[in-house]
């Protein structure tokens, strides 16, 4: 959860990508920690998550960053300090909300729900509060990480198909986004989504 705050506080693109990757890795290991007995399905899911979220997607993002030759600073629409404070407030809110929700006894003690909600909030905050296409993609990744964390509650009951589909769709989403980033770059010579304001009422 501390990673969320780092993500909000960071001012440089590479470190933001690194944070998202690290979070993906931690997420990938989570099912192994939660499960008491190791089953093949859980192992496969964990390995796939680590590979996708921790390695493939960050590599793609870095490549997009390098080929597009973007300067490394983030221009926040919401300043770093306010976004840190908002993130912290969101985290407290998530913990309080998670306490109040009815949970199964085996989930009551863990911070899984709180962490998931906090990540979702952070992701939304990054989506709104950063102007660069790649940092918005990172925000979207953190949002998806939060959702995935929540999905871990259901790992006993959700069949592999659903989990697989989620991973697959996530990658494709970033892929497509990457292509678009590339196109924005060529069309506008910048990755600043603030310039995407021709279409308005």
């Amino acid at each position: 959860m501390g990673l969320n705050l780092v993500a909000l506080g960071t001012s440089r693109l590479p470190s933001l990508i690194r944070v998202a990757a690290l979070q993906g890795m931690v997420l990938g290991i989570m099912p192994l920690v939660i499960e008491h007995e190791l089953r093949l399905m859980v192992l496969v899911i964990a390995a796939a998550t680590v590979a996708m979220k921790g390695l493939v997607i960050p590599a793609l993002l870095r490549r997009a960053m390098r080929t597009a030759n973007i300067d490394r600073d983030l221009y926040p629409l919401i300043g770093f300090l306010p976004s840190l404070l908002l993130g912290a407030a969101g985290m407290i809110g998530a913990v309080v909300l998670a306490r109040r929700l009815p949970l199964l006894p085996e989930h009551r003690e863990s911070l899984l729900v709180a962490g998931a909600l906090a990540s979702v909030l952070t992701g939304l905050l990054l989506l709104i509060g950063r102007s660069k296409a790649i940092s918005q993609v990172c925000g979207y990744l953190i949002l998806e990480n939060g959702i995935y964390l929540f999905g871990l509650l259901l790992i006993h009951s959700t069949p592999l198909l659903v989990e697989g589909g989620i991973l697959l769709d996530l990658t494709v989403a970033v892929f497509v986004t990457g292509i678009i980033v590339d196109r924005i770059q060529r069309a506008f010579d910048s990755l600043d989504t603030r310039k995407l304001t021709v279409l308005r009422e």
Partner: peptide, 30 residues
Amino acid sequence: PRAFEATWKYLLVGGTGIALSLLGSFCLGY
């Protein structure tokens, strides 16, 4: 360029919406 702008918005807004509906699906599962 206008088409790219529209596509970007579609992907960002639509993607966030679809992410929230996944979270909703998990909640219903829970």
